[in-house]
Amino acid sequence: MRHTIPKIMLDRVSLPESAAVADSDAVPESETKMQAAGVRVTYGEKVALSGISMEIPARKVTALIGASGCGKSTFLRCLNRMNDIIEGCRVTGQITLDGQDVQDPDLDVAMLRSRVGMVFQKPNPFPKSIFENVAYGPRIHGLFDHKEDLERIVLTSLERAGLLNEVKDRLDEPGTSLSGGQQQRLCIARTIAVNPEVILMDEPCSALDPIATARIEDLIDELKSNYTIIIVTHSMQQAARVSQFSGFFHLGELVEFDSTEAIFTNPSDTRTKNYVTGRFG
């Protein structure tokens, strides 16, 4: 089907009712969205993470930094149980979302993932149209009763991901026809469309050029008023630019977790200091 959006609708683009989120000012500074306590991950014999504990504040950007292979991506994938699909991967310890145990076998993983969305390292739009890429989540979760509702959700999500102006005339073109940076924003729009509370980003800019990276970083900054964002990055400058809190991972351990300012100006651990000053990593 063709999606010709009436001009009038484009003007009225607004948040879907269900996506209405409270004003960020109302949230107390200390509110914790997710909490990890003693998280340990093993792949068969290999220990990937040992005893990670941290509190992730709501509606802030938290950066996880560290050298490659230090376990930061593994930790990120624990938060929405994406490690479930990897054979031989075992997670112990406690992870909570709003105080609810994420590891609970009775917890519905599909529901968890709709609340904790994920953006991947390499943009992975589905081989469908731009419209259908964003509509995918709302369709499987049944988030609309009428076609107009779906269109509103898609357009709002694209707008929030800062992509609407670039693609509004070509919603029927395949998602893969976009540039790398646009594809990554499409993936963000796709994630937003199911109205998550937390968005996990696994090195979202590592495959992008500097200009596209800057756009994503701006986007992250805008999104933090509505979503709790956790971003894994190997670029310290990026962490410094976008995050309010940072955690430094080293060899499967969380060395230090503090406000980004503290991590970069006054780290308490020498390993952190060596890393942020560029001695290794």
């Binding site: 699909i85 969305g117 995918y136």
Partner: peptide, 24 residues
Amino acid sequence: NLREGSLALGATQAETIVRVVLPS
């Protein structure tokens, strides 16, 4: 990564296969 993209949105395995894997 297409499977993971779908699962990360909260799709079940069957939905992922029918709506993403098989069309691809």
